[in-house]
C-alpha cells in the first residue's frame, strides 16, 4: 500500500515536470505548427546556466537567468524556423530544429563534460514523512511549482491579449492577421514561454533523487514528446493529461520493473513510447487533438 502510494506520488511528480516540457511543445506547435526537436537542448541550456551561475548570484536569480537564456535561445529558434519555413518542404522547420538541436546539444555536452552539475537548489536530499509515506521534498516543490506555472500559462491563454491572439490564430490565421493580430510577436512569445518553462523543468529534472544535471538531462525531455503527442499536439489540456499518463506509466514501470523479469530492465525508459503508440493506434490525432481538416 505504501509502495503504491509512493509510486503514485512519484507519478504525479514526474508527470508535473513532464507537463512543463510537454506544454512547451504544445504552445510552440499551436503557435507555429512546428515540432520543436531542439526543446531538449534548450532545456539543457537553461539548466546549465542555472548550474553555472548559482554559485555567484544565488539560486533564485540563477533560475531567472537560466529561464532568460532558455527563452532567448528558444526565441532565436523561432526566428530561424520562421525563415526556414519559406519555400522549403513541409517538414523543413521541424528538421531545422533537429539540426539546431544537434549543434546546441553537442556544444553543451562539451561544456558540461562527463560530470553531474549541481544546480544549488535549496531542497537538497531532504525527505519528509506524510502519513507513513516517504516523500522527497524536491518532488513536492516540483509539483507545487509546476502547478503554479501551468496555472499561470492557462490563465494567460484565457485572459491575456497573447492568449486571445493565439486562439484566434489557431482558429483562422488569415482572419486573425486581418483583425490586427500580430502573428510574429504572438509566436515569439510562445517560443520564449516554452523555453522558460523548460529551464524550470531542468532544475527539477536535475534535483534529488537524480544525481544532478548532466548531458543526458536533455534526453529526459524526450519523454515529454510522447506526453505532448498522446494528448494531442495542439491541445494544452491534452499535454497535461498526456504528461500524467506518461508519469504514471514511467513510475509504475520503475516501481515494479523487478517483477517483470529480464524484459523489465530499462522498461521505464520506453514505457512512455509504448503508451503513446498504443494511444495513437486508436486515436491518430491523440486524445484531445483536433482532427486535421481536409481543405481543397
Amino acid at each position: 500500500m505504501t509502495r503504491l502510494a509512493e509510486t503514485l506520488l512519484d507519478a504525479l511528480a514526474l508527470g508535473s515536470v513532464y507537463a512543463l516540457v510537454a506544454l512547451g511543445f504544445t504552445v510552440v506547435f499551436k503557435a507555429s505548427g512546428v515540432m520543436n526537436f531542439a526543446h531538449g537542448s534548450v532545456l539543457l541550456l537553461g539548466g546549465w546556466v542555472v548550474a553555472a551561475t548559482h554559485g555567484a548570484v544565488g539560486f533564485p536569480l540563477a533560475v531567472l537567468l537560466g529561464a532568460a537564456a532558455a527563452a532567448a535561445a528558444s526565441g532565436l529558434l523561432h526566428l530561424l524556423t520562421a525563415r526556414g519555413l519559406r519555400g522549403a518542404g513541409a517538414h523543413a522547420a521541424t528538421i531545422l530544429t533537429i539540426g539546431a538541436d544537434l549543434a546546441l546539444l553537442t556544444a553543451l555536452g562539451r561544456a558540461i563534460g562527463a560530470d553531474y552539475l549541481a544546480t544549488g537548489d535549496p531542497w537538497g536530499s531532504a525527505v519528509v514523512r506524510i502519513g507513513g509515506v516517504h516523500v522527497v521534498e524536491a518532488r513536492l516543490a516540483g509539483i507545487a511549482v509546476s502547478v503554479a506555472l501551468i496555472g499561470a500559462v492557462f490563465a494567460a491563454f484565457r485572459w491575456t491579449r497573447w492568449g486571445l491572439a493565439m486562439r484566434a490564430a489557431s482558429a483562422d490565421e488569415e482572419a486573425a492577421a486581418l483583425m490586427g493580430v500580430r502573428l510574429g510577436r504572438m509566436r515569439l512569445t510562445a517560443w520564449c514561454t516554452a523555453g522558460a518553462l523548460a529551464a524550470v523543468a531542468a532544475v527539477f529534472l536535475a534535483a534529488f533523487p537524480s544525481p544532478g544535471l548532466d548531458r543526458s538531462t536533455g534526453q529526459l525531455a524526450l519523454a515529454a514528446f510522447p506526453a505532448a503527442v498522446l494528448g494531442g499536439l495542439d491541445s494544452a489540456a491534452g499535454a497535461l493529461v498526456g504528461s500524467l499518463a506518461i508519469g504514471l506509466a514511467g513510475a509504475l514501470a520503475a516501481g515494479y520493473q523487478d517483477e517483470l523479469g529480464a524484459f523489465g530492465e530499462g522498461l521505464p525508459g520506453i514505457a512512455p513510447y509504448l503508451v503513446m503508440v498504443a494511444v495513437l493506434l486508436v486515436r491518430p490525432s491523440g486524445l484531445l487533438g483536433s482532427k486535421e481538416a481536409v481543405r481543397v
Binding site: 524484459f263 520506453i270 513510447y273 509504448l274 503513446m276 495513437l280 491518430p284
Partner: peptide, 20 residues
C-alpha cells in the same frame, strides 16, 4: 494512419523500443 508530426514521433518510439 498518422499524419505529419504524429508519424515523426511514433517512429521515434521505434528507436527506443528497438534499443530495448
Amino acid at each position: 494512419r498518422l499524419r505529419g508530426m504524429y508519424l515523426g514521433v511514433a517512429t521515434l518510439a521505434l528507436v527506443f523500443l528497438g534499443q530495448h
